[in-house]
Design a protein around this nucleic acid. Structure first.
Lengths: 252, 252
DNA sequence: GCAATAGTGTCTATGAGACAGTATAGC
DNA sequence: GCTATACTGTCTCATAGACACTATTGC
């Protein structure tokens, strides 16, 4: 193999003075509700994609990091405080929401107004933190259309809605990322309250992976993982034998 | 939980006219040589970080996608043609180099000249494709300093060199990504020539993971995976019993 | 008591690791 | 013949799945 092109002069590494792309962050806010994986979306009030649903997002300010921008979007658009993890440097904090960078989308033409590069994040939120959802925001059920690399959104009555920009692709990558990470990280706990039963934890896994899991081996694996701390307490008002409540051991 | 901040007005989603960050791509070009994972780096010829070693990179042009920019960097700075994979939509092509988006780095201050957001990619290259390396480019051995989330670079004589910008962190994320993906994807084949022995394949895994693997179970797992196609040919000039050569079945 | 789930114990199938034994190249 | 590795076969151990059995709640 030979060097096909002349080597680019180093001078070209100087930033261009014009024609810079805009940079945004978009945040996929995921939760589990009604037995489904759901995402919080915002109804657009202007062109393009007027009245389409879109990911909460915003432009990256010149002095803020990408993570700070994503946390700001979480705070301003969903009233949530975030905690940063992911990318091999899982950070811990006291905040209730798990946040991790997802992927960066930059196809020219993805925003008809001009060149916009979007650094996508995804957040995992316990459903109880999304009680009060204001006007023009809504939680949608998600359906991954694997062959096409995009997701579709539905309301509680199975009515499908339209997504703005390439946000269907971004949602698809988010779903696939969460599914993948479920296998080798403790990401599932982020969608549950502080105390939970093994049945509830298994439901989380089954909902996200969209398949039944073996109850016995799920119990064994979870209890053997050392990630769970028994509380000694039992759930209440079940109509059947109450299960023990466990806590997630963040240290492990 | 309540909505702590007023909802950001939608007007704020308009792109800012000034103070836009610059966007670059940096490419971690990885190969295996001399039994080590190595990266191709470029010696800087100007301030800041004069004479430090840096990842090959360049500014994203206003009409090109991020992938196109990364492919251009590969072509112009390493004479390589790329093939795009990754992020749940593994695309295949006829090109010899595997390329996948890694992570986006945007901390303010990471480039003292101004706000620069870098979308990092990584490429896996068979060593024979990196024979002629021109002046001011060099392959370095890598050492991951796990606790600090960065990698260090060494030449063949174990002399350590300095990395520019946050490129040590980017290298660290790349190493960790490759290690991770080795477990659940067929990424290891990208670092080998078209035909290879099981021993050579195992060496790839051991070099990247930095640990000895069990030979018997490695053979069994690989042969059972359906990813290998026996060629019937044997390697030559070994000094010991020659092993069969296999090919990677891209379709599977 | 009945329904529904929690939790325990055990059997089996599968895959990984360990190791023995045979095969084949260069020297 | 010697050395180094390829390749085959077998045993053991750990884990996952399956299933049987008992326990505990609300009704």
């Amino acid at each position: 193999m030979t060097w096909r092109d002349p080597i680019e002069p180093f001078e070209k590494r100087e930033p261009p003075r014009f024609d810079r792309p805009s940079v945004t962050v978009d945040v996929v806010i995921l939760t589990l509700r009604e037995g489904h994986l759901q995402a919080l979306l915002v109804k657009r009030k202007e062109h393009p994609f007027l009245n389409y649903w879109s990911l909460p997002g915003g432009f990256v300010q010149i002095n803020e990091s990408l993570e700070e921008a994503a946390l700001r979007v979480l705070r301003q658009k969903a009233g949530l405080e975030g905690r940063v993890g992911g990318a091999g440097r899982e950070g811990l904090g006291q905040h209730p929401v798990y946040l991790e960078q997802l992927y960066t989308f930059g196809r020219p033409g993805r925003d008809p107004r001009g060149r916009v590069i979007s650094v996508a994040y995804y957040a995992l939120v316990e459903a109880s933190h999304l009680q009060e959802i204001p006007e023009e925001r809504m939680l949608f059920r998600l359906r991954l259309v694997e062959e096409e690399g995009r997701a579709e959104i539905f309301d509680g009555k199975h009515k499908r809605y339209s997504l703005a920009f390439d946000h269907g692709e971004i949602l698809a990558v988010a779903i696939q990322r969460v599914r993948g990470k479920l296998g080798y990280t403790a990401i599932g706990f982020e969608l549950l309250p502080e105390r939970f039963t093994l049945r509830e934890l298994q439901r989380v896994y089954e909902t996200i992976l969209q398949k039944k899991l073996n109850k016995d081996s799920f119990r064994r694996k979870m209890l053997a993982s050392g990630l769970l701390q028994a509380t000694g307490e039992l759930e209440k008002g079940t109509g059947f034998r109450p299960a023990e409540l466990y806590r997630f051991r963040r240290e492990a």
